[in-house]
Design a protein around this nucleic acid. Structure first.
Lengths: 221, 221
DNA sequence: CTTCAATTTACAAAAACATTACATTCTTCG
DNA sequence: CGAAGAATGTAATGTTTTTGTAAATTGAAG
C-alpha cells in the first residue's frame, strides 16, 4: 500500500508496539513530541497521522488544530489511554477522523489505518462547498446531505469531477448509464432537473449550467 | 476500547481498589460470588475475567472450570493472596491465562489486563460497542453475544472491518461465500435481515445501512 | 430422526427510473 | 423583429428494479 505514516508518541514501549505492528505493512516515522513532528510535517506530508494526546510539549489537541490549518483533509487518528480524554476531543469537535483508546490490538490498529486511508483516498472536495463521498455514495453541500439516488449521484459526481468543463450529453449517458446508452427521451434532463431541485433545497445556487446543443457543466467558482 | 471486564471478588476493599484502577480505562462489572457472576455471564460475555480464588460459595477453581466449559478462549486472570494457592492452580492446569498474587500494584494490574486482552486477539471496534472475537467466532454488542451463525459472523465481521465504507454486494458475496458466488437469490439480504434482527435484539441501533444499487455499509459513528 | 444453518422461493413494498406529453426557452433566419 | 423549429424544463404517470421478509426446502451434523 506504500503509505507513509507519521506517529507522535512519547512512550517508548508503545512506539515499539507500533513498530512491530506496521512492519512490512506501512512505512512509519515516529516523533516523540510535537515540535519534531512539525519540523518534518512541513517538509513532507504523510498519508496519515497517529497522534497520542498526552505529549511532553504540545498536547494532541494543539497538534491536531495545527495540522488542520495546514491540511484540512489529512487523516488523523487520535490515541489515548483515557477514554474521557477521547470524549473530550470528540466533544471539541476538532475534526479527528478516528479515535482509539489504549490498549488496542495490533490488528485493530491496522484495520483502522487502512479504513482511514481508504476514506481519505476517496474523498473528493470541490471549491464551492460540494463534497463527494464515494464511501457512502453521498454528496454534501455545506455539510448537508443532498439525498441523491444512485443515478443522480453518479451524474453529479461526474459533473463535479469535470467542474468548469462542459460534459457532452453523450458522455454523460455513457458514464452514468453505461454503453447501452438510451437515444432520446428526456431522462437525462429529468435527472438534471432533479439534481437542481435537490441542490436548491439544500441552499445551493445555480451550479449546473445548461450548454445548449452540447450538454451540461458544473460551474466552477 | 470499551472492553468489558468481569471481576469476582468478595473483599469490599479490594473491589474499591479495582474500581479506582480501571476507572476510565475499562468498563467493569463486579460480583461478590460465583452465583451472581454466572447469572450475568450467561447473558453477556465480557472481554476478560478477573477471579479471586477464595470466595464464599464456589471457589475460583470451580468457576474457572465452568467458564472454560462455556468459553474456551475467554481470558481469565487468577488472583490470590496466597502464593501457594496460585501454584496450586497452576499445577492443576485449569487453563487460566495469567496469575497475580496480592498485593499487586494498580499499574501492574492494568498492564496484565492489557497484555491478556491483546493476547486474546480481540478485534475491537470502538465507536459503537461492537467487539469481534475471531478466536471464538463471536461478535458482542455491549458485552452481549449476538449469537451469530458462521455466515452471519463473516458478513458482519467484513462490514465492521470496513466500517464507514459501503461494501458492494459483489464483494460481500466474494468474501463471505467464496468465488463460486451465487448470482441472485435473496440470500444476502436474508442474512442482513437476520443480522439486523439480532443486533436489535441486543439493543443495538441501525448500524447496517442499505445503499441501494450498491450494497451495505456498517455505519461508523 | 431431529435440529439448526443455509438457501431458495415467492411475494410485498418501496424506491428509483423511464417515458410521455406538454410547456418553455432559445436560436435563427425570413 | 418575430415566428418556426429545435432543444431543454418539468409535471404527471406508469414501469422496472431493488430490497425486505415470511415461509418452505434443502442439507449437513449429531
Amino acid at each position: 500500500m506504500e503509505a507513509l505514516i507519521y506517529i507522535v508518541e512519547d512512550d517508548e514501549g508503545i512506539r515499539e508496539l507500533y513498530d512491530g505492528a506496521f512492519e512490512g505493512v506501512f512505512v512509519t516515522k515516529m516523533f516523540e513530541n510535537g515540535h519534531d513532528f512539525f519540523e518534518c510535517f512541513e517538509k513532507a506530508h504523510p498519508s496519515l497521522v497517529i497522534l497520542d494526546i498526552m505529549l511532553p510539549d504540545m498536547d494532541g489537541y494543539t497538534i491536531l488544530s495545527k495540522i488542520r490549518e495546514i491540511d484540512e483533509k489529512m487523516p488523523v487518528i487520535i490515541v489515548s489511554a483515557k477514554s474521557d480524554e477521547i470524549s473530550a476531543v470528540k466533544g471539541l469537535n476538532k475534526g479527528a477522523d478516528d479515535y482509539m483508546s489504549k490498549p488496542f490490538s495490533v490488528l485493530e490498529l491496522i484495520a483502522r489505518v487502512k479504513t482511514n486511508l481508504r476514506r481519505a483516498n476517496l474523498y473528493v472536495t470541490n471549491q464551492n462547498g460540494f463534497i463527494v463521498d464515494k464511501n457512502v455514495y453521498k454528496i454534501f453541500y455545506e455539510g448537508k446531505d443532498l439525498g441523491l439516488t444512485l443515478k443522480e449521484f453518479k451524474l453529479l459526481k461526474l459533473l463535479i469531477s469535470k467542474a468548469g468543463v462542459t460534459v457532452e450529453r453523450e458522455e454523460l449517458f455513457r458514464e452514468v448509464w453505461g454503453d447501452g446508452f438510451i437515444g432520446e427521451t428526456r431522462t437525462l434532463d429529468m435527472h438534471v432537473a432533479q439534481l437542481r431541485e435537490k441542490i436548491k433545497e439544500c441552499g445551493g445556487g445555480d451550479v449546473i449550467v445548461t450548454v445548449r446543443g452540447i450538454g451540461y457543466r458544473f460551474e466552477m467558482k
